[in-house]
Design a binder for these strands. Sequence first.
DNA 1: CCGGTCTGTCACCAATCGGTGAGTAACAGC
DNA 2: GCTGTTACTCACCGATTGGTGACAGACCGG
Lengths: 219, 219
Amino acid sequence: MLNESTVAVLEQTGAAEPEKRIRDRSATERAILKAAKNLLAEEGFQNFGINAVARRAGCDKQLIYRYYGGLDGLVEAIGADLGNWVKDRIPEDTGGMFLLTYGDLMERLSLLFLEALRDDPLMRRIVAWEISENTEQVRRLSEARSKALGLWLDRMRGSLTPPKGIDTAAVNALIFASIQHLVLSAAAGGQCAGLVLKNGKDWEKAAGALKRLVRGVYG
Amino acid sequence: MLNESTVAVLEQTGAAEPEKRIRDRSATERAILKAAKNLLAEEGFQNFGINAVARRAGCDKQLIYRYYGGLDGLVEAIGADLGNWVKDRIPEDTGGMFLLTYGDLMERLSLLFLEALRDDPLMRRIVAWEISENTEQVRRLSEARSKALGLWLDRMRGSLTPPKGIDTAAVNALIFASIQHLVLSAAAGGQCAGLVLKNGKDWEKAAGALKRLVRGVYG
DNA sequence: CCGGTCTGTCACCAATCGGTGAGTAACAGC
DNA sequence: GCTGTTACTCACCGATTGGTGACAGACCGG
């Protein structure tokens, strides 16, 4: 599977004939998983298939069937990583701020989520996948993602009490929906509903509007 | 191309052998366009191809090349219809309400847009397509759609002046983004960010949250 | 050393894809 | 009636897809 050592050997000898690969199952498994994630992140779910993954991993597709039980298992393995997404991509601390009110919290979380999503092409593709297809594959991914997100939200909320008289579940769903669609739309076409989103200045305006929206409803 | 008259004939005679089709170019063109729209609405853009459209239209794919210049032209023809979407799917009147403030207006438009999108599977697929791919095809569709939406917004605004000190373009983009993502996510998996969206009651809660969001920022 | 298991490769399958060139049947004008 | 155009069908192309069975070589326990 063309792992680093093999490449090194090839470069040293300059040999064109197929040097034997290293027999290392776990390394191959990791290479396949990595290839799958990169492929999904870069090319999207349109051309995400057994052949494409095997090609990118530099190994035979048979190994994907053997080690992951096919594409479904591979997707599931990707989903398993998703549980750590929040921990990996979103800073834990509050940025030195004191979050006194629920509004403080939601403003902070919204902006964090916006940035994290903007910086993670794989997660963007997965979100786009979720709203485009409804297969078992995608449903599993979606479940893992929303579960992780929910846990994060709960954990960050801590002992802060949500405001009375507001359906925070519905409102928060709308807020996060707006962030996701904004980021996805921008990533796809550089704009969202006519609003250009390309350079940093554009995103500052969007972040400002997001703050206003959150503050408007949560004070 | 199995237009209505042919089907009628087949049903009358019960003949299985290929009764000759009626030679009617414009009817065939319409049948192809209709088939394409239905296919896209029902199956999504995943399996949207020349072969599938021709199969559904009941004619040879060659005709699609001849009459529309291929899939691109066909998609463009679909996009041409999009200009009339607002007019066809969204009621003109204000529902007997008096829209005195910008907040009144945006609340009304948001709810109208939410319902219209919820009722139109084709438009949902197109929106999902927009954020999943970035081909020339999709870009054209996207352009037509956002243009029509912008015109509608302008027209409905009338002489109402937007509030000072608020970046209405950015805020409205976020509001419409939230609506789109909510509806798409619900259509795909029956929920959005953990918020279940299946029966009418669920949607009433969502609409209430949307009102709150709009009123929060626009008063 | 021998036999079996593990890792990886290869060749092949039917099905489908987008695309094209040739052919056929119905019609219109003369 | 004959001719040319229009509407339409069919057969085929190469490429790619997901999927499988057979095989080769490295490794390990005996």
